[in-house]
Each structure stands twice: as C-alpha cells, then as structure tokens.
Design a binder for these strands. Structure first.
Length: 1130
RNA sequence: GCUCAGAUGGUGGAACUGGUAGACACGCAGGACUUAAAAUCCUGUUCCCGUAAACGGAGUGCGGGUUCGAUUCCCGCUCUGAGUACCA
C-alpha cells in the first residue's frame, strides 16, 4: 500500500497511549536520562507551528536515548496559573479553572497528534491543588529558613533563634537590606514576641516588607522586575509605576554570589549566562562616607540623624559635622578627582540637606523629574540636569569641601543612591560638570579630558595626595586601606539584582499559606495544606482596594486541633492586620470579656518591657512631665505603650519594624484620632540614642494639647457613632478565624520547582520521595526559550539551591545542559490593492513584481491561501466578502504575493496551525520538516515552502520496503558493500549530530541515505531494519509500522538497541585527491590511500594532466596531506 | 552606548579540528510519461565571459593580515538580530 500516514499515525498514537509505552521506570538498572521541555502556559489560542519546535527536538533526543539504553524521563505538564485566564474571567465571568481546563484539552489534543513520547502518567498542572500544595509547602520552608552567610547556605530559622539566645546578634552575618538590630543574648530574651518575630522577618528567605514595587494599575497588581520592559508590563503593555507597598519578597539576593559562580559549572548558551550575569550585576567597589559640612542647616540634618534615616550617622564630636553621605564607587582610586557629590532626587537626605536659599530650586527640580515618565527619562539619557542643595560635604582623603547636588542620573535604587562625581573619569559626571561649571580635575598623567571624560586605568596618578605616582591596582588598594583606617569607608560588593517581589494582587494563583495574627504573618499548619483557592463572586479587587481574594466569603484561618492557650504569648500586643490597608477598619469592642483579656495582655507586657520602654518609663514615670502616665494600658481594643489619659496623648514605641507595620499603624492612628487621642511614635533606636530629645518632644506636645473631652466618647456612644466599618480585624477569640494573606503567588512560583514533581508526580505525602530525587537527581537536557533567562531560569536556580541547602534535593544546579530553541517567526504574505485617482482603494490587485508600475497599498493576506508565494485567487475571493469580485493584474499568469517576516500573530494572518500540517502531510513530516528548517537554536520564519521535499523523502523511504505495486517486499539477501556503507554512514552521522544537537543535518543525511539506497534499489532486510531504528526518533510512526511489517513485535521499536557503528564498512582503498595549483583546485586524481606522501607527490607530478599545468616549470613546493589534498606551489 | 550572536546562490541552509565552498531541500528552467491535468521520474541550476561542450575568470558582508592553502584564525569597518541601559 502507498504511504497512508493518517491511518498509520492514528494507529500508533493509540497503541502508545494504550500500552503506556513511554512510562519512565522507577526501578531499573538502566542509567537515567532526564529530558525536559519548558512546560507551556495553556493559552486560548492553542499551539501554532512555532511551539512544538523545542518539543520535537527534545522528543527526538529522548527517543534516541531510549534506543541507547537509558531509562528516560520525558514528561510534560502545564504552567496553568496566570494572567490571561484571569483577564478572560474578568471579561466573561467564566471561572479561570474552566477556561484553563478547556485550553489544556486543546493543547493535549494538539500535542498528541504530533506523536510525542511523553510519560503522561506524570503530568503536572501548577493550578491543581495537589500540585500547589507543594508550592505552598516550599514557601513555608523558605519562610522557616534564613541565610547563614558564614556557612554560605540556608539554615532553619530555629538555628538563628538558638544563636540569638546564646550569643545575641553578634557573629550573625546579615543578608538583609534593612537595618537589623544589634543585641545581646539577654536583650534578645527580654524582647517581646512581636519584636522577636519582626526581627526574624528580616532574616527569613521569604518575608513581608514595605518595598518599592512595580505597580501596574491596569492589571491591578505588582509585577516583578523581569515582568516589566521599558516601563510597561510585559503582558499587555500597560504602564507601570513605582509605588510603596507591603509585599512578600523572596530573598534571592542572598544567593547572588552562588547564582553567579554556579553559571561556570553548567552547560548553557553563553548569551543566556551573560544575561544572568548582567541581571545579577555584581560590581566590586567601595563605600565611602563624605561628612556633611553645613553650619547653616543644623536642625533638619540633626533631625534626620535621630530618625535614623538614610546613612546619616551621629558625629560623636558634634560641631558642624552633623552627618555623612555614603556613596558607592567602583573607582575608589579616583577619589581625589571628586569635584562634587550627587544624590538621587528621592534620597532621604535631600530634604535635610536643602538650604532655605535652594529650597525652591530643589523642589522645582524634584517636581520636574517626577513628571517625567520612564520613557522620557530614557530618551533624555544623553542630557543631564540637576540642582544644587546648598550643602557641602567633605572629601575624607583631602578634606576638600565639595558641593552636594541632586540629579536624576543618579538612581535611588542602586548602591546607596549617592555618587561621588569624578568628571575626569566618568562621562555623565563630565557632562554635569560642564553644564553647571563645576571643576574637572585630571588625576592620571596620561588622561585626555579635553572634550570628554577619560576612564582610563593606565598611567600614574597625579593631583592625588598619597597615591600620586601609583598604578591603578596599587591606588585602589591604598585608598581602600586608608578609608578603612579612617573609619570612613570599606570595600563593598554591590549587586544590581533586587529581592524578588512575590505577591500578586490577583485571583488566579497559589494562595500564600499565611494568616495574620496580631499584625504578624504566621504560617498555617502543614496539615492544613493545600490552602485551596477560594471562590469569589468577581475576579476584581474589592471596593476597599484589596485583592480579589478579599471577596471570598468566610475565608479565614481557624487553626484546628487544640485551642490556643488562654494566656497570651509573652509580650504580645494586639495590632491590626497590615493587610487591612489604609482605611482603618476596626471593630468596636463591646465585649467585656475581650476587654478583660486585653488587660491580661497588658499585665504580661508590663512584666516584659523592651529596653527602650524601660528607658522611657524611667524618664516619664512619677509625673515627671507634670502629667500622669500609664504604660501598657488597654484602650478600647488596643494596648498603648504609654498613655497620658488627661491629655489623650498616646506614645507608641515601634522599634525598627515600624516600617513593616506602617500602614496598619497609620490606620490605628486614624482610629485613635477619631476617639480623640493624639498619637506620637518613636522608634526604639530614637529612644535609646537620644532619650532627652524624645522626652522634650513629648513635653512640648503635652503642653500644646487641651484636655481630652471624654464625654464626647463614652459608653455605647462610641460604638454607635463610629464611622468606621466593621469589616477587618484579626481579633483572637472573635470566633471568625484569622485573616489570610490576600495576595497570591506570582506566575513563577509553580515553575520554580516543577521538574522535581515529575520525578514522583503522584506522591501525596511529599513533593517527591527522597528515593525519586536521588535517582533522577537533575535535568540532563532542558529545552526552552531564552525569554526566561532572567525570570524562570534564575528563580528555579535560586529555589533549587535553597532546596539543596535544606537537604530536600541533592544537586546544586537543576539544569545541567540547556538549549534555547529559536523562535519561529511568522512569514506574512501581502497582496497589493490598486489605488484609484481619488486615492481610494479599488478591487484590483497587482502582482508583487509589478507594484512599482502602479499606485498600490499592501494588505495582509491569509498565508494559508498562498502556496509558494502564489496566491490562490479563487480562495482569495472566497476569503472575505469584500474581495468577492476582486480582479488581478498577473505576472506570467500568476499572482505573486509580497513577503515580510513578522511575529506570528492572528492580526497578520500568518499563523500556521500544526493541525493543518498534520492533516495534510502527517506528523512525521511535520516533525522532520521542523528540524530540517535549520539549526535548532536559530530563530527563523516559518515557511511551509519546502515541506514537500520532506514528505517526498518519507514516501521514498516507504517505497524502499515496497515493490512497484506497493506490496511490502524485502529480501533476506546479504547486503552489498555499498549498501552497508550507506547504512553505517547514517548510523554514525546521527550519533554525531545528536551529540551537538544538529538535527537539521541529520535530516539531510537521512535523505542522502535513502537516495543512495534507492539508487541501488536496496530492499535488504538487514539494511532496512537498522535504518528503521536509526530514523525512528525522527519519524516514529512510519518506523513503527515498518518495524512490525519487518516481523518485529509491536511496541518494541522504542526500546530496540541502536545499531552498532562499524567503521570497517567505511574504509576506502582509494581517494580522489583534489590537486590544486597555488591553492586553486584544478582536478581530482584517484590515488590509493595506502600510498605515503612522498609516493603521492611523485605520482601526482608524473601525471600527464598535472604536467600540462606545470608547463615545464619546477614546483617550488608540494604539500601533500594524506587523505585530504595535494597542493602544488609554482 | 555596552554585551552577545550573526552575515554563504533566487530561498532555507551544509561545509564538525584551516584542506575540493554551495551538501540536502525548496524554487526555477528544460524534458519524459499523459488526450490533458495532478502525481511521478530524468536533466540542468553560484555569478561573469564564452558557449553544444571543454576551457578561463571572480566568488562566503567590506578592507587588510597570517598561511602552501582561510567561510573557518587575527586586526579594522559596515550591516542585521537579541539582550541591556544614566548601575556610579
């Protein structure tokens, strides 16, 4: 029978599915091989021909490895949480789970018909509760861990607590951006529960913190840095703005160095490694403190000092040196060339540094920069602008007084947000100095700074004090040593990478397994996993701006098991949920029992004061302010740290976690204000560093306040008059459970560990069994797109390293070998509509070759009605009603379409669906053609134009096994030498090509082999059977069919041994040596390969043809490379 | 701007360590079969000169270099694609 691909393919796909042919073994003596594809997001559009490219390559590889005797794990699944399904849900009200389910069904159908050898018994879906249970579980492990810099690995947080209890904070190397507290073991033990937890949150690998985030108002969510491109969201292209929000973050920066060095151990494409290196952005340099010299403005600077803001440090001596600006530089050697300092407009010190004279100018500049969009800022990159603060700073190495400016070319988010400007060496500083007439001092003898900065590191230093005459290397070391000696600087490694924001204010994602109690995040119990995504009425934020999960009714955490102990944890105070956001929704407490409980808490608090509380208590007690003060006093539903009841003044000591709970604190202040209280807040640091000033401020405030009018707020009147809505709150014992975290996890959460789930996909007691992890270890070959370089691939490496640290997995790197398949671009076709005299489009279309003779406008035409760029005019007329009566101006009787390479997209009518290709040519042709298109890693436009060649090849291959009447017919005769040679050439070629992932050249070689065998009319079973095995990874269906026709058992081909290459069949006794004269090939001569170079030379020179060229001249030189070439130099 | 990748016929591409440039395929042209078309098969197909053909010259983005010999190695430049961008 002729090659009936449709029937053959259907039959074998069914067979493989029924027999689970590709199920990976869990127990075997075979070596393992793990071939993985990046799993797809199941979008509504289904697959186009570009998607399977990588899957086909990996499938060929997986099938090849099976033939080579490996136990191959080749799984597939779906990254099924994500924005598009949710956007669709918002528009249609359709639950994302339903659309996701439908899309997955489409994907599965499309994948199945291409004949992949996936082990579907291990399928994963990130949106399935039995999967995201483990995503949540890993989140919990991260929460329960911290990064021990000394050991350079993550450890359980309990070990940190142990350390604190024994040694206090000394000896702990922090990896936190925030300032951590210093304390002794005793002080730690004396800390309240809340303070302890707040402090620990600064160490946990996933943590809650107020951070500047990329907020996308259109999507209603925050985005990670890698999801933002040029100030717009990667998905949808909506504008993104910076905003401060309380957010979950992942402390990926703790792993910055390991992520960087690990790159050297893995076989990945160099560009991709480079992208990760840039993203991590390690720069080695120094921190330098420039003391501020400004007698004109002591008070604002002084205030900033006490607030512990920025980098201002208290000057022990006082005087006019009231603080310092800390800068980061990679060129400490150029410090003598510093002619001014520049700080970012958003820098904390801008306000205190601005003198009254400069105030207007600075404010105007800040307003101007704020108005500039991200794009405008980038467009302005070549110009510089700024404003002088009026303050000066002192260069620590030479005591020189330099101006402090603000400018938007200095970024608040990088380094310290401040730079020392060295115009002679830095082009931006140079431009700035020129523009504002600031000094430019050359500091290296060979420097040429006539027209631009010269960042040279060659030459010797001049104008540079104690480093004059030194080289770059010497100077850098000397300067840093000197700075350290002076206590004003130190060597510092800076990373560009920031911690990854982990929360999304969206519905369709993994719920974070956290609830809030007393304003602090707590993990739910492990036995309560998975925390199921609740149902909501709408997939939109709530009216009060909370994420969609805020709509879930009755969704709160009620710890099961034994009720929590009645006596509250020591030192615990009640604080609002930080997630309650600004509005301050506090329930009125009419419950006397609850008030009693509060009083118990108060007593406990009083017995366990913090150090700062104690200090302040000593200063305020016994009416030292003239008013009676109470501490840890229950007011309504709060416990105030200190309260002057008569004046209605509440003093709150917040420690450094103040920032953490800022929104909640603000909310509480609002409510207390409503009840007639004034609230003052101080940090523990302020009290400890300058208690006198704190007390003075309290006294001032007390004196400025009238007595509190308690009659206005008494009894039930409070409750009934309360304007605040009783929605939020997290009050213990309220009987409603605790508020869950309302954000969900970002898209990359589920994909950061999925390759481990495939190892043991159906395990419901572990993410994967230890046994499975130890057997499969890591991914041997990973194929996917380079667009995941700084997202998925970085986060996965991070989670993997963490999981290794806590002994969940055994490999440091998850993906040993990675290949980026190129993108398949669209190839658009155009027709050219004639434009009439009035400039209007007519119904006449001009063939591409003739467009220059007419006035036309191009129109995209559906590529599926075009073949080899020739338009099917009948189909064109039927394509759209408006073209029904179209007329054509043809060339050579054909309408030729124009061509352009664009993104494959519906709107360009250039989408080619693999279904259509499979229907017309079959899966085997599609598979081979996609490989034949070119090197896997190269991006290329899809062009169906050459697919006939591959189809013809498969028919020709099929024909080898059949006689002219299409009857199956092979002979048992001994193969000839030529046949064996053809076979063994392809056996070796496929092995070599697959080792370097050169699939396209293998397809060519198959064609050569089949052409050669057809030429000699080979139908020898021994040859053809081996050929079937070698071709089977590429064209599995046709090969399975022929394998069985050859008399083998069905289903055994996938595990048949790969034919053994025998070099003996390729040995030649003669070689047609190319003979070149002066490097130009003139002829070929057949010479025995047994001849040695000397004899070859004699033979060649004696040849009559060669003599003709020599023309009686004596060659200057004859080069003979055995088996390669002969070159005669005249 | 910086970093990386790349540039070979009409098209996709091959040439793996410096050794016959253009494999394999598409397209195109001519031919066979056929009443005809489709399908199939055969021949030719880098360019230029010339032409039945032999033969000659040029040729892997451009300009140099190293070498007996360079698509391959080195230097400079142009262009294309990707990433990144006031990163101090």
């Amino acid at each position: 029978m002729d090659y009936q691909f449709a029937a053959i393919e259907k039959k074998w796909q069914q067979f493989w599915a029924d027999h689970q042919t590709f199920k990976a073994l869990d127990e075997t003596t075979k070596p393992k091989y793990y071939v993985l594809d990046m799993f797809p997001y199941p979008s509504g559009a289904g697959l186009h021909v570009g998607h399977p490219l990588g899957y086909i390559a990996s499938d060929i590889f997986a099938r090849y490895k099976r033939l080579k005797g490996f136990n191959v794990l080749h799984p597939m699944g779906y990254d099924s949480f994500g924005l598009p399904a949710e956007q669709y849900a918002i528009q249609t009200g359709q639950h994302p789970a339903i659309t996701t389910e439908e899309n997955i069904a489409t994907y599965r159908r499309q994948l199945d018909q291409i004949g992949f050898s996936f082990d579907w018994s291990r399928e994963v879906r990130t949106s399935a509760p039995d999967y995201y249970k483990w995503t949540q579980w890993i989140f919990m492990q991260l929460f329960n861990s911290w990064y021990n810099k000394a050991a350079d690995k993550a450890e359980p947080i309990s070990k940190l607590v142990e350390h604190f209890e024994k040694n206090g904070s000394s000896g702990v190397d922090s990896v936190c951006d925030d300032e951590v507290l210093s304390f002794t073991a005793e002080e730690w033990k004396a800390m309240g529960y809340e303070s302890k937890q707040t402090e620990l949150l600064k160490y946990r690998l996933t943590y809650l913190r107020e951070s500047t985030v990329n907020w996308c108002p259109a999507l209603g969510t925050v985005l990670a840095n890698d999801e933002v491109k040029d100030g717009f969201s990667e998905r949808g292209g909506y504008p993104v703005e910076q905003k401060k929000m309380m957010q979950w973050s992942m402390r990926i920066t703790a792993y910055a160095d390991r992520l960087l060095t690990g790159l050297d151990t893995i076989d990945w494409p160099e560009p991709l490694k480079e992208m990760q290196r840039n993203w991590i952005g390690k720069s080695v340099g120094a921190l330098v403190k420039f003391r501020i010299s400004s007698p004109t403005q002591p008070s604002p600077v002084g205030r900033a000092l006490e607030m512990g803001e920025g980098e201002v440090k208290v000057s022990p001596t006082g005087g006019d040196l009231v603080g310092a600006i800390e800068v980061f530089t990679t060129r400490a050697d150029t410090i003598f060339g510093t002619s001014f300092l520049v700080i970012a407009p958003e820098h904390d010190l801008v306000k205190p540094l601005t003198t009254p004279a400069q105030k207007a100018e600075i404010e105007a500049y800040i307003t101007q920069t704020k108005k500039k969009s991200e794009l405008e800022r980038m467009a302005d990159a070549k110009t510089v602008s700024g404003a002088f603060t009026g303050s000066y700073a002192i260069n620590p190495v030479n005591g020189e007084k330099v101006q402090v400016w603000i400018a938007d070319y200095v970024l608040a988010g990088y380094g310290t947000g401040a730079v020392m400007a060295v115009p002679s060496g830095d082009q931006r500083d140079y431009l700035f100095a020129k523009q504002y007439n600031l000094p430019i001092v050359p500091i290296i003898d060979i420097q040429n700074i006539e027209t631009e900065a010269d960042p040279t590191k060659e030459g010797r230093y001049i104008n540079s004090g104690f480093i004059n005459g030194l080289t770059y290397k010497e100077a850098t070391a000397t300067v840093i040593a000197k700075l350290e000696e002076l206590g004003v600087g130190k060597a510092k490694i800076n990373y560009r990478m920031r911690d990854a924001i982990f929360g999304r204010q969206r519905y369709w994602g993994e719920p974070v397994p956290v609830y809030f109690k007393d304003g602090l995040p707590h993990l739910i119990e492990e036995k309560d996993l998975p925390l199921i995504l609740p149902e909501v009425d709408k997939y939109l934020p709530t009216e009060s701006g909370e994420p969609p999960l805020g709509r879930a009714e009755g969704w709160s955490y009620k710890p099961s098991g034994p009720a929590p102990s009645k006596s509250p944890p020591v030192g615990e105070t009640l604080k609002p949920n930080p997630n309650a956001h600004l509005t301050g929704n506090y329930r009125e407490t009419a419950d006397p029992a609850y008030y009693e409980q509060l009083k118990d808490y108060s007593i406990a608090n009083r017995q366990n004061p913090t150090e700062a509380e104690n200090v302040l208590w000593q200063l305020l007690r016994n009416d030292q302010t003239g008013y009676k003060v109470r501490r840890q006093h229950a007011i309504d539903q709060f416990i105030a740290d200190f309260v002057f009841l008569q004046k209605g003044l509440i003093i709150e000591l917040d420690g450094h976690h103040h920032k953490l709970n800022k929104e909640a604190d603000d909310a509480r202040t609002e409510v207390l204000n409503y009840f007639g209280f004034t609230v003052m807040r101080f940090t523990n640091g302020e009290v400890l560093k300058n208690s006198t000033r704190v007390v003075e401020q309290i006294k001032e405030t007390l004196n400025s306040l009238n007595d509190r009018d308690i009659t206005k707020f008494s009894g039930t009147a409070i409750t009934s008059e309360a304007k605040v809505s009783p929605t939020g709150g997290d009050l213990e014992g309220a009987g409603e459970g605790f508020q869950y975290e309302l954000s969900t996890m970002p898209g990359w959460a589920g994909s950061s560990w999925y390759w481990y789930r495939y190892m043991d996909a159906n395990n419901d007691s572990e993410f994967a069994s230890k046994q499975a992890v130890e057997y499969w270890k890591d991914v041997d070959l990973y194929i996917g797109g380079s667009e995941h370089a700084t997202g998925h691939l970085l986060y996965s490496r991070f989670w993997n390293k963490f999981m290794k640290d806590v002994n969940l997995v055994i490999e440091e790197e998850p993906f040993k070998k990675l290949i980026n398949q190129g993108h398949i671009q669209g190839r658009s076709n155009f027709v050219y509509r004639l434009i009439d005299d009035l400039g209007k489009g007519t119904n006449t279309f001009v063939s591409h070759g003739l467009v220059k003779q007419y006035q036309t406008s191009p129109i995209h035409v559906n590529v599926n009605i075009v073949e080899n760029d020739i338009l099917d005019t009948a189909k064109f007329k039927a394509w759209r009603p408006e073209f029904e009566n179209a007329e054509f101006i043809l060339e050579n009787g054909k309408y030729i379409c124009g061509v352009e390479v664009e993104k494959m997209s519906k709107r360009y009518y250039n989408v080619v669906n693999p279904d259509d290709i499979v229907k017309r040519y079959g899966a085997d042709t599609l598979r081979m053609y996609e490989m034949f298109l070119g090197p896997l890693e190269q991006s290329k436009p899809w062009n169906t134009n050459g697919i006939e060649g591959v189809f013809k090849f498969l028919r020709k291959f099929w024909k080898l096994f059949h006689d002219d009447a299409w009857n199956f017919s092979v002979s048992a005769d001994e193969p000839t030498k030529a046949e064996l040679k053809s076979l063994h050439k392809i056996i070796r070629k496929v092995e070599e090509d697959i080792d370097r992932f050169s699939f396209n050249t293998s397809v060519s070689s198959f064609m050569i082999a089949v052409n050669e065998l057809t030429e000699v009319k080979c139908n020898k079973k021994s040859i053809l059977q081996d050929l079937v095995v070698v071709l089977s990874p590429y064209a599995p269906h046709i090969c399975e069919e022929l394998w069985v026709l050859l008399g083998n058992a069905a289903g055994t081909l996938s595990y048949a041994p790969y034919p053994k290459f025998n070099a003996a069949y390729l040995v030649e006794d003669e070689f047609a040596y190319p003979i070149s004269i002066n490097g130009k090939t003139k002829m070929n001569l057949n010479i025995s390969l047994s001849l040695e170079p000397k004899d070859i030379e004699a033979f060649v020179l004696a040849s009559a043809d060669v003599q003709k060229y020599l023309d009686h001249k004596v060659p200057k030189k004859v080069i003979v490379v055995k088996g390669r070439i002969v070159n005669i130099v005249l």
